[in-house]
Amino acid sequence: MNDRDVVRLLRKKVGADFEAVFRGDDCVALSLHDEESIFRGLIRHHSDAEKQDILKLISRLRRLEHLNLRKNSLGELPEEFQGLDSLRVLNLGSCQLRAIPEFVFRNAALESLFLGSNPIEVLDPRLMSLDKLKSLHLHKLLLKGFPDGLSRLQRLETLHLYLSGLKEFPRETFECGELSSISFGFCPLRVLPDEIGRLRQLRYFTLVVTKVKTLPDSFCDLRSLVATRLYKNRIERLPDAIGSLLNLEQIALYQNHLDTLPDSFRDLSRLRKLNLAKNRFTELPSVIRNLPALEWFAFFDNPVECAPQAFPGLETVIERPYGGSRMG
């Protein structure tokens, strides 16, 4: 049975159309995840026996490079998956996996691995041997620790760790010099390490729902930063040199403890979106009027005596977007 025959049989067993890409007669990409489907995972509600039958058929596609099984609640993968060793992109998110499947470590060329939303408590240290990885998604896990060796992943560009179970950044995070996107949060982290400033390629940074009160001065060394989400922390002040982030276009500081902004904030000449809602400002920071690129500004739920006037040409959210009276 060739790959085209296998895919035809798969379509019958899945009971729906799905993406399959061929290079010649070889199937090189397959996805059983469909955002247009009500359940997203096309075999999510098949029986366990039906799922295993379908997965065993997929294991025959030995030239697969891209495989997306997200949101199919698989529980476990068959032993036959050991034959899949040419993968470059693998998505196993929301598959009810309790450990990283053994076959993953056979894919030395893997560049993108999505393991988010699984009840995984322990990461196999062999994960750090996949040194071609550029994107690693480990969010919404139940991790009790993190293995050594993250710094071996020197090609890593994207690392998602929010709601991972971790209480602090893995210690080698800041030795991955190619990182351009990081997310972390929903944990009792109190201090953002000074080492964050080493990540000179960082463009997108998310730190949310923590106990962090200040950003280190080294945060201002992130000169490539384009957007940062820092909402629902306990940030009381921003670094004085925040204005040196000249590429910054978006910053969300919703629900922190800010009552003032540094004078250098006016130097953020590319800033387009700013969210200062639900902080402790008693008046509108004057530097806001000196941001030439600003297009959108949120300022609701601050203890100001009277609501600030809207700016001409600027979409300003000064009331709760979900309704309620103007601040006063």
Rank of each mutant, 00 (worst) to 15 (best):
F281E: 10
P119D: 02
G15K: 05
V208L: 09
F184Q: 02
G15A: 03
L189D: 03
L215T: 06
V21Q: 08
I288V: 09
L42V: 08
L153W: 03
L166Q: 00
F265S: 10
G177H: 10
V208F: 07
S218R: 10
G75S: 13
L245V: 12
R203P: 01
K51E: 04
M128D: 00
L245H: 12
S164V: 07
V226G: 01
K132Y: 09
D221P: 05
D267S: 14
E102A: 10
G324P: 01
G149P: 10
K13H: 05
L133N: 05
I242G: 05
R60E: 10
A29I: 10
Q82W: 03
R155D: 11
P262V: 07
N233L: 08
V21C: 04
L64R: 11
S94P: 01
S218F: 04
A20K: 06
R320Q: 08
N107F: 12
L274Y: 01
L138C: 02
A99M: 14
L64V: 15
V89L: 15
L159S: 06
I120Y: 03
N118K: 04
R23D: 15
N107T: 11
S218E: 11
N233W: 06
H46N: 04
R40V: 00
V191Y: 00
L57I: 03
E178R: 15
C95D: 14
L87G: 13
S117L: 07
L138N: 01
L238V: 00
F103Y: 12
R88T: 15
D240Q: 12
L113E: 07
L87I: 15
E236Y: 07
L246E: 13
L123F: 07
D26I: 08
P125S: 05
L141T: 05
L30Y: 13
N247T: 00
L230M: 14
Q255I: 06
D5Y: 04
G93M: 09
R190W: 02
E236K: 13
S181K: 03
K51T: 03
N107K: 09
V6N: 02
D124I: 08
I182Q: 11
G243V: 03
D34M: 07
S325H: 14
D267M: 12
K71W: 11
S181N: 01
L136G: 03
D34C: 07
G93R: 09
I54E: 06
H257V: 09
R23T: 13
I235R: 13
A20H: 09
R8P: 00
Q154I: 02
T282R: 15
D34W: 11
F265R: 06
D194G: 00
N2C: 00
R152I: 04
V89M: 14
N91R: 14
L261I: 02
S264T: 12
E80Q: 06
N2E: 06
L230E: 09
T210E: 08
Y231V: 00
P239L: 05
D131P: 00
S73F: 13
C95K: 13
V122R: 10
G197L: 07
E50L: 10
